[in-house]
């Protein structure tokens, strides 16, 4: 399989008055063509910032401090904004959390879709409309010719998210970054949207980076998973392996915290909370919450290494 995306030592910092906070710390992973990767972690772990930095769109005062993002044989981290604009929405699309917010309320969805096509393809307006209708059909929106003339408020939440997905598909991208695409939807719609995304990735041979905090969704949809904690990847491997046999104490804690089918049993939790970016402890970022924490954990930062079980984990205490 050929590599689609190769993120190497990506570091994203946020500039403060006289220092900088590290939001994403030395993150590396690869994604093959048509492969689906889950990026999980708690709020503030750096998942979304990682997603945005792939398309070089970290909002100020954030900036890519180090590392490279290889895609299509080019390092996206060094492209100019002008060149980057040709990649965004064209070869890489992004889907956001809240479909209520991502569609412009004063423009018809037809306008918004045609505009996207015209921004990247040299086609006529009629051809662009035909492409838009074709994609709407792919996400199971009925009578698309009528729908194109409607405004976002005329659709339900689930339909709007399907339209957002259709917009992401317009230019047949090789990679879709979905930033918590189902968080704002209710549970039945969530399943519907995830099934749709999965199906489209398979039929269109698209890569997917799914940013979420829902391990259930990750295990259903993705092939690989990267667990992030305080800006770093702490565990990376095949989804099945990571979920069934988690290595890193943090991943183990996360999986143990999932509610079980049996009612009445107490939910497990990881004691403490994730450190503020300004107060990340010396050594392993997880040391103050970890049951294994020993000498080296408090002095040196653990590197992501292949462990005996076959997955990569960043922990001094694992073999």
């Amino acid at each position: 399989m050929d590599t689609l995306l190769d993120v190497r030592n990506l570091t994203v910092k946020f500039a403060l008055r006289d220092s900088a906070l590290t939001a994403v710390n030395n993150v590396s992973f690869t994604l093959n063509r048509g492969e689906r990767l889950g990026l999980v972690g708690e709020s503030g772990a750096g998942k979304s910032v990682t997603g945005f930095s792939i398309i070089n769109l970290v909002s100020k005062p954030g900036f890519i401090a180090d590392g490279s993002v290889w895609f299509d044989g080019r390092d996206l981290a060094t492209l100019s904004q002008e060149e980057m604009r040709k990649v965004r929405g064209n070869r890489i699309s992004m889907i956001f959390q809240d479909p209520m917010m991502t569609l412009n309320p004063v423009l018809t969805i037809g306008t918004q879709m045609v505009e996207t096509v015209l921004a990247h393809r040299n086609v006529s307006k009629a051809e662009a409309e035909a492409i838009a209708m074709d994609k709407l059909r792919k996400v199971y929106i009925n009578s698309p010719e009528k729908r194109l003339k409607q405004y976002p408020h005329e659709f339900s939440g689930g339909m709007r998210q399907r339209i957002v997905i259709a917009i992401a598909l317009l230019t047949d991208p090789a990679l879709i970054i979905a930033d918590e695409p189902t968080t704002a939807l209710d549970v039945t719609i969530q399943a519907e949207i995830m099934d749709l995304l999965l199906e489209l990735c398979r039929t269109e041979d698209m890569g997917l980076i799914l940013i979420t905090h829902d391990l259930g969704v990750v295990s259903q949809v993705t092939q690989k998973v990267a667990v992030m904690y305080a800006g770093s990847i702490v565990e990376l491997g095949e989804t099945e392996q990571v979920c069934s046999n988690p290595q890193h104490p943090y991943t183990r804690g996360l999986i143990a915290a999932l509610p079980e089918a049996a009612t009445g049993s107490r939910l497990n939790q990881i004691p403490g909370s994730m450190p503020n970016l300004a107060e990340i402890p010396v050594g392993c970022a997880f040391n103050n919450r970890c049951e294994l924490g020993k000498g080296a954990c408090f002095t040196t930062v653990p590197q992501l290494e292949r462990k005996q079980s076959g997955v990569f984990a960043a922990c001094h205490e694992l073999e």
Partner: peptide, 22 residues
């Protein structure tokens, strides 16, 4: 600050277009 502006940037639209059209 709203997400539709972010979405328009992610789509790869030009800043002038985002300003005037969106």
């Amino acid at each position: 600050k709203k997400e539709y502006v972010e979405a328009a940037r992610v789509i790869g639209l030009k800043p002038t277009r985002i300003m005037w059209r969106h």
